Amino acid sequence: VTTYKLVINGKTLKGETTTKAVDAETAEKAFKQYANDNGVDGVWTYDDATKTFTVTEMV
């Protein structure tokens, strides 16, 4: 189990959260659900070296 981080660069919501998951795919599903629940829709990137997902909403 690995800890993954999500950085949110939203128009109205900004911040970070973490989740523990067995792999990046599982973490991504959890983060996308979290973003969807919070009304964040944007471009996703993932950095495997730092285990960090970033979602950026276009203005």
Rank of each mutant, 00 (worst) to 15 (best):
Val1Trp: 13
Thr3Cys: 10
Tyr4Asp: 01
Tyr4Leu: 00
Lys5Cys: 06
Lys5Asn: 06
Leu6His: 01
Leu6Tyr: 01
Val7Pro: 00
Val7Trp: 05
Ile8Arg: 02
Asn9Arg: 11
Asn9Val: 15
Asn9Tyr: 15
Asn9Gly: 04
Asn9Thr: 07
Gly10Ala: 11
Gly10Leu: 12
Lys11Gln: 11
Lys11Asn: 09
Lys11Ser: 09
Leu13His: 11
Lys14Ile: 09
Gly15Thr: 15
Gly15Phe: 14
Gly15Ala: 13
Gly15Pro: 04
Glu16Cys: 15
Glu16His: 10
Glu16Leu: 10
Thr17Trp: 13
Thr18Gln: 09
Thr18Lys: 07
Thr19His: 08
Thr19Asp: 03
Lys20Ser: 15
Lys20Arg: 08
Lys20Gln: 14
Lys20Pro: 06
Ala21Gln: 05
Ala21Phe: 05
Val22Ala: 11
Asp23Thr: 05
Asp23Trp: 04
Asp23Ile: 03
Glu25Asp: 12
Glu25Ser: 12
Glu25Gln: 13
Glu25Trp: 09
Glu25Cys: 10
Thr26Ala: 10
Thr26Trp: 06
Ala27Ser: 02
Ala27Cys: 02
Ala27Thr: 01
Glu28Ile: 09
Glu28Pro: 00
Glu28His: 15
Glu28Thr: 04
Lys29Leu: 11
Lys29Glu: 06
Lys29Trp: 07
Lys29Tyr: 08
Phe31Val: 02
Lys32Tyr: 06
Lys32Ser: 04
Lys32Leu: 08
Gln33Leu: 10
Tyr34Ala: 03
Tyr34Met: 04
Ala35Lys: 01
Ala35Thr: 06
Asn36Ile: 15
Asn36Thr: 15
Asn36Leu: 14
Asp37Ala: 14
Asp37Tyr: 08
Asp37His: 09
Asp37Phe: 07
Asp37Gln: 13
Asn38Met: 09
Asn38Ala: 10
Gly39Arg: 06
Val40Lys: 02
Val40Thr: 03
Val40Phe: 10
Gly42Cys: 02
Gly42Leu: 02
Gly42His: 02
Val43Met: 11
Val43Glu: 11
Trp44Glu: 00
Thr45Glu: 11
Thr45Gly: 06
Thr45His: 11
Tyr46Ser: 01
Tyr46Phe: 05
Asp47Glu: 07
Asp47Leu: 04
Asp47Phe: 04
Ala49Tyr: 09
Ala49Val: 12
Thr50Ser: 09
Thr50Val: 05
Lys51Arg: 11
Lys51Leu: 12
Lys51Trp: 05
Lys51Pro: 00
Thr52Tyr: 02
Thr52Leu: 03
Thr52Pro: 00
Thr52Gly: 02
Thr52Arg: 03
Phe53Leu: 01
Thr54Ala: 04
Val55Tyr: 02
Glu57Leu: 07
Glu57Gly: 05
Glu57Ile: 10
Glu57Asp: 09
Glu57Pro: 09
Met58Glu: 11
Val59Cys: 14
Val59Thr: 13
